[in-house]
Design a protein around this nucleic acid. Structure first.
Lengths: 336, 336
DNA sequence: CTACGCTTTTGCAGCGCTGCAAAACAGCAT
DNA sequence: ATGCTGTTTTGCAGCGCTGCAAAAGCGTAG
């Protein structure tokens, strides 16, 4: 290839990779040849030689869930800025699929590390990952020291959401999204925050107003809301464990002829774009997605680059309460 | 590696790849060794040797647009079933970014072909792609013979959408989403369908009711609707060029105290999940996304596998009109 | 027993790059 | 000149696989 323009292939490599100790003269000469031939290094060969792939995998349960697709975007951007490509995988929350990814991951030389949002695996199954696979977990788990974990403080956020509803003077506050089983750790943290909000003002949450759902999507929200409305003493406010659940719940409320928030106030979680434009728009807990993505990528690359695995880090990303119409009612608003 | 269990590395390769002409005896022997050592072939090395990457790229303007994230899912699944991985890239509709992808694409040995949904490039710029890069275009372009194109019949679909509104007896039907410039071909096809619907019944579309928008998202819809409502003779029905536009428009309508569909009927395009759960739910044109994704992947792999580029194919995927509350009103409905 | 054709297995080269260590060069002091 | 140090360039091997063609094995026919 470009040796035809003067030097050894090794020197070309040096120039292309910007290594030190190349005279200006040769650098210029090589660069001219590179331009002329339109030469681009073969990534595959480089990776093979270096024993790395230059790719990281992002493994999430669902891609059509707005929260994940918004996150995906930021992850891709952050990775690209650092010279990495992103491979996507969707697990559908299938435990076997998820396990396969982290179990013999290091054998799959397709990626150098994984950013993983588990759904079907509980904390135990998670601990059983390939120790050589650089791993960053997103969501509501806890690091056992062999991987990094990035997420917001779910208990605090949920407590804050619930307090917002109580502050409105609502007395029958429900929660939709609990998952009282091993893989439902995320949900349970939110339920804990929900209870804490009551406890903090000397109240107790009504157990029949805590509804479990298999997933966190619209349909679950709609179904749970229907169930709640059929209770003898239906709620006057609902904390939904995701914005999709909230949208589903609101859909049911409106269909039943109830007003949001006058009859029932609704708060969601995730701050997806849909929630900002729905009717009514949805009050929500907004995690700093940009920071979550960037931190996850940075930690992962650090792990990949480190010869001995660094200790597992717990990163708490910030969140904030975004108040919209579903709790505050229609405000005198500027035109869109 | 596995030779330790009897045979040459070449034979292992033969077994692993399921080549013919391996005796049952050796096949079994090798497979046992493979299991024992947990051996997995090195994808990088294989790819280098074969001069391919085993990956395809999916290049879309926005990943957080539900239409694309829903499509993405299907593409990933279709590719995986055929042994390919998917690399994702988001262009933000930036023409330079888009050009870079298809111009010297074949140099980037990272992927063997591209499924591309252009936004910033017009038909001319598109024609200027690297002829060696297997390429499948999605959306509303036309194949120039050097790539395949998969999409629905936008003119027919738009006409059908508009006719639906006219069938309701609406007389002041607006359109939101036109883009009267080179890169707006997609939008222009929809405007054509819009006009044809009028023409078919001897009417003419009111020009002041055709609104241009820079993009197809909620904000554009909300803004355009505001503009329309401020007209002396505001519309009583709106054809929106995407469901997001429709959601934005509906948001404005409700905020202005108007009823959908009683005062203004709204129809969207794309059939994203949000539209099915919004208040009111959105009538829409539903393209067969699953088929679009599968066809795109299949055509691309065919191109990749073919020594001489096959002629460019035009594929028309089916679509259908899905009637929901935003035109039909609230129906007596079964509980969710 | 040899020859022939067919199936199965093997060896070698090479994909295009980088790690490593040696070689060439340059500048300076002796 | 010679030796020494530090900088720049080079050659070789090898990452782990597959393409190719030759080699070995095997069964049947002559």
């Amino acid at each position: 290839m470009a040796e035809l323009a003067g030097v050894s292939s090794r020197t070309v490599s040096n120039v292309v990779n910007g290594y030190a100790n190349v005279t200006e003269r040769t650098r210029v000469r090589v660069q001219k040849a590179v331009e002329e031939l339109g030469y681009r290094p073969n990534v595959l060969a480089r990776n093979l030689a270096q024993g790395r792939s230059g790719q990281i995998a992002l493994v999430v349960p669902y891609l059509d869930t707005p929260y994940f697709s918004e996150l995906l975007q930021s992850v891709i951007r952050a990775a690209r800025e650092r010279g990495y490509n992103v491979l996507i995988d969707q697990t559908d929350g299938d435990a076997e699929h998820e396990r396969a990814f982290i179990a013999h991951g290091s054998r799959r030389l397709l990626f150098d590390g994984v950013i993983f949002s588990p759904l079907g695996l509980d904390q135990n199954a998670l601990a059983d990952h390939d120790p050589n696979l650089p791993l960053v977990i997103l969501g509501e788990r806890t690091s056992d020291g062999t991987f990094d974990h990035v997420g917001i403080d779910d208990v605090a956020a949920s407590r804050q959401a619930t307090e917002h509803l109580l502050d409105l003077g609502r007395t029958r506050v429900a929660a939709i999204g609990d998952q009282p089983y091993a893989t439902g750790e995320a949900a349970q943290l939110r339920t804990r925050g929900f209870r804490e909000a009551f406890a903090a003002r000397g109240l107790t949450a009504r157990e029949d107003l805590i509804i479990s759902t298999p997933r966190f999507n619209r349909l679950d929200g709609a179904r749970a809301m229907t169930h709640l409305l059929d209770l003898p003493e239906p709620p006057d406010a609902v904390f939904c464990y995701s914005d999709l659940v909230a949208l589903g719940a609101i859909h049911t409320l409106i269909a039943r002829g109830l007003r949001v928030p006058e009859d029932v106030a609704v708060i969601g979680y995730d701050d997806i774009e849909d929630g900002a434009y729905s009717n009514p728009s949805v009050t929500t807990i907004s995690p700093d997605k940009e920071m979550i993505a960037t931190t996850a990528v940075e930690r992962l690359l650090l792990r990949i680059g480190s010869p001995t695995p660094p200790p597992g880090l717990e990163v708490r990303a910030p969140h904030r309460l975004v108040i919209r119409e579903s709790t505050a009612g229609r405000q005198p608003r500027t035109r869109p």
